[in-house]
């Protein structure tokens, strides 16, 4: 599954992008077009949103 890809719409550019086939809801991926972080918000149908900006208290 990990080697397979699926197609999704980049929420920033509107273009079709290839993402790993084993993504799950909540996962963060990098847009191959803009490099921006995108969050997977739905799997069926696949939907991406721009991931939230880094906040001060994020981390380990």
């Amino acid at each position: 599954m990990a080697d397979e890809t699926i197609t999704a719409e980049d929420p920033i550019t509107g273009e079709e992008i290839e993402i790993p086939g084993d993504v799950e809801v909540g996962e963060i991926i990098d847009s191959p077009i803009t490099g921006a972080e995108l969050e997977v918000v739905s799997i069926d149908p696949i939907a991406l949103e721009e991931a939230p900006e880094l906040e001060e208290d994020w981390g380990e």
């Binding site: 799950e24 809801v25 909540g26 996962e27 963060i28 969050e39 997977v40």
Partner: peptide, 9 residues
């Protein structure tokens, strides 16, 4: 979680 990183995956 609020973000699934490689660690969570």
């Amino acid at each position: 979680y609020s973000r699934i990183r490689r660690d969570e995956k």
